[in-house]
Nucleic acid binder design. Structure first.
Lengths: 249, 249
DNA sequence: GCAAAAGTGTTACTTATACACCCATGG
DNA sequence: CCATGGGTGTATAAGTAACACTTTTGC
């Protein structure tokens, strides 16, 4: 048992010098999207994030924020970097831009932030602003505005981390709806890797992992041959992920 | 400029809820070693680590601790995980074991820790205890004692991270003396990967990276053929590392 | 019928793996 | 002379990369 005594900083409901920021990514109309928040009474955008409660694990706080902003639970969420510089961004500029919203006694101190990224199904998300913001929306990750804090930098680092992780774990499982076509999956990989892939080689490699199941139906609607629908075979996917022999290079 | 006002927590010279822990690894007599500290008046060991100063970047704090405990500067040091659980370890047990050393008003609060690992040259290190400890020594990483806090767990996570990173960046550069033999490098890889490698395949792969230079001299001393000495070609090594095409699988 | 995108196989090349003998040295 | 560990090559298998045409669909 921890001691029962109360000291001053125990009174604060949050860990005062630690925050987290979530780079919540999805895939829609062949583009990677990132979820951003617009602060009340401004045209300023930032990543979702915030402080960590004193009795809350950091991972739990990331899940809480994800849940609050998207409505989604139980999602792939990955710590990718700690942003621990003393002057991560111009605090005076933030003070100026957000002065109508935040108590200067509580904010603008130096804070270290833990960066997380999440991969979510665009169709399942209900973007929801928080107490400080009035709009929550998807932005094309290639065309975000200039963000508050060091959030453009955080997105950049997240995308690098994601590219690295791609070799170790196929990611479509989290980013796509339950049913999808191989060309859709290929375009997702192309969006993340930032280069085009050969469809024959892509299909051969992806199918050889043994984690996809082809369904009887096809997707209809375009003026072209109808592609087959696939879905992930959950058990095989989880099994291979655990064994660590899911590579895609 | 940040505001000039002083609020209570500004008085603390450290960020109170954030610490870091360093898994400092080296290689000696064919074994991976980890640097541990023994706390004053006890037989209890822990990793080097500690709080972060209010005006100090987290990476800078890790470098400071590395420097203080080893005498080394400018070393490969890598953030690998944030340990953010609420109950990372039994605080009451720590309170009991270290009660003669630490002020109960300041310690035993929940703290989040950033884990770093460093790879250092065993021969260049002068193990140096800190203010709370009376011994600083290398332990075989396979045979550490039961450590304070959650430090056995932290070492375990560090080793996993190291194994993953091994594929992306050859690591002998940091762990070996300037001159070394290929069998020595191979034994280092074997120690990290936990399996034996074929010497012909190992040498071919390692040399094909183009970052090693064979010297004229050989290492003498054993009752066997004298192995060649090698050293890293610093420029090529750094260049390839930056380009990201240094793989070892 | 025509434009758009999907589906599909083969070959060359590169990389990884498996495997065994001789050589230099110190004692 | 002998025990120890270092140095070295080749053959096979696996994986990766490059490449183009036919099919289906909606309009």
């Amino acid at each position: 048992m921890p001691p029962k005594k109360t000291i001053l900083r125990d009174a604060a409901p949050y860990l005062p010098e630690l925050t987290l920021d979530c780079v919540i990514l999805s895939f829609h109309e062949d583009r990677l999207k990132v979820l951003l928040l617009r602060w009340k009474g401004t045209q300023e955008w930032s990543l979702p994030g915030g402080p960590i409660q004193r009795n809350e694990a950091v991972d739990a706080a990331a899940n809480r924020i994800l849940k609050e902003r998207t409505g989604l639970d139980d999602i792939f969420l990955q710590q990718f970097h700690v942003f621990g510089e003393v002057e991560r961004y111009n605090r005076e500029e933030i003070r100026h831009k957000l002065k109508h919203l935040i108590d200067p006694d509580k904010w603008y101190e130096r804070a270290v932030s833990v960066g997380y990224y999440a991969l979510v199904d665009y169709t399942k998300v209900t973007p929801t602003p928080d107490a400080y913001t009035e709009q929550c929306a998807w932005w094309d990750v290639q065309h975000t505005p200039a963000l508050l804090f060091d959030h453009n930098h955080i997105i950049h680092v997240a995308r690098q981390a994601l590219r690295t992780q791609l070799s170790w774990q196929p990611i479509g499982y989290n980013l796509l709806p339950e049913q999808f076509t191989l060309p859709e999956l290929q375009r997702l990989y192309e969006a993340i890797l930032g280069k085009t892939l050969d469809p024959r080689n892509f299909q051969r490699k992806m199918l050889s992992l043994g984690i996809l199941e082809r369904l009887a139906e096809r997707r209809r609607g375009g003026a072209h041959k109808s592609p087959y629908l696939y879905r992930f075979k959950k058990e095989q996917y989880e099994l291979k992920l655990k064994e660590g022999n899911l590579f895609f290079t």
